[in-house]
Amino acid sequence: MKAIVTARPEPHRVVDDDGNAEPYRHQLSIDDRVALAAAQEVADDVTAVGIGGDPARRCVRAALGHGADEGLHVEYDPIEEVAGDKYATVLSRVAARESPDAVVVGQSSSFAGAEIATLVGERLDWPAATRVTRLGTPNLDAEVSIEQGELAVQRKLSIGRQEAVVLKVPAVLGIDAGFTDPDRAPLSTVVAGQRAKIETVALEDVAPGESRFAMSIGAATVEDVTPNERWGRGRPPRAGTVEQRIYRMLGRGTDSGTSAGERIDAPPEEAAEQVVAYLRDQDLI
């Protein structure tokens, strides 16, 4: 059986005994380490897949050091954290390229969210099971009939409730964080992982049409942006005197930068009389 497993980074910070905190650094998500251990239980060929920049590549290297057989890095230079639906799109394209029997995802990863397993299943039209706590024969008082090309899984429903289901492979598995407590890899495995070769492919080769910008904004699209030069709604005016700029920012200016109104330099009572006279002349009162 062949499986691909996600290798996603999560921020990690170490505080020493003196209370000094080192800068944040990224390491392989603990949830994806659990997913890797789950994949190794049922697959004899496991490929760790990282999507992103250098942190993703380091996570693939870490997965190799924990026993993954192969490493694949879909490389691009992220602007921000990748949107969950975009991550699922690229992961499903990788699955179509590699033709595995299972895509195994850490269910509770803070990076790209817990929805990845479901989204990948939808894109590939594969059955998906989430919150998986056991692979193979369920640890429940339930009779499960398994035929060739099928996989039995046990999944969490709620606190104290679980169920056994059978999936037809290929399938997508979202592994619950409580599946196992991953052990440290033997030194020989760590050394082999450091020496292993990582296959690197460009994002556009896996998902044509995707870009480093699109990977961060998800399904949102921007068609046209028209700036409004009122205060707080776009760029402030750059031309004219200070008074003219203020009037324009308050929405009282014209394209030429002059005030749309008239300033009356007179005492309040006289100014009020002039305003009333103007309104009467214009048949407004």
Rank of each mutant, 00 (worst) to 15 (best):
E273W: 00
E41Y: 00
P267E: 11
T254V: 04
G121F: 03
S216P: 04
L91M: 12
S259F: 10
Y278W: 13
V165S: 13
V82S: 10
V120Q: 09
R8M: 13
A48R: 05
I246K: 10
V49H: 02
E269H: 10
A185Y: 02
A185D: 05
D183Y: 00
P78H: 06
G234F: 04
K2M: 02
A62K: 07
G71P: 09
L124V: 11
A185P: 03
I285N: 02
V34H: 02
E269D: 14
D69G: 15
S109M: 07
D265S: 08
G52K: 11
S158D: 13
P78A: 09
T118F: 07
E223L: 15
E143C: 09
K86W: 01
S188W: 02
E163H: 11
K197P: 04
S211P: 07
E243C: 09
R235W: 00
V94N: 07
M215D: 11
R13L: 08
Q40R: 14
R238Y: 00
G106S: 09
A277Q: 08
A196P: 05
V90R: 04
Q27G: 14
E10V: 15
V191G: 08
H73N: 10
V49C: 09
V120F: 04
E98P: 02
W231F: 15
P78G: 12
T258N: 11
S108R: 12
D141A: 15
E210A: 12
T200V: 15
A68N: 03
V242C: 07
A171V: 11
G160T: 09
A43Q: 08
E75G: 12
V105C: 08
Q282T: 12
E147K: 13
S259V: 00
D176G: 08
V14D: 12
S216N: 09
V14F: 12
G240S: 07
L250V: 01
N228C: 14
G52M: 06
E10Q: 10
A266L: 10
G232E: 06
P186A: 06
G136C: 06
A272V: 06
W231E: 14
G106Q: 01
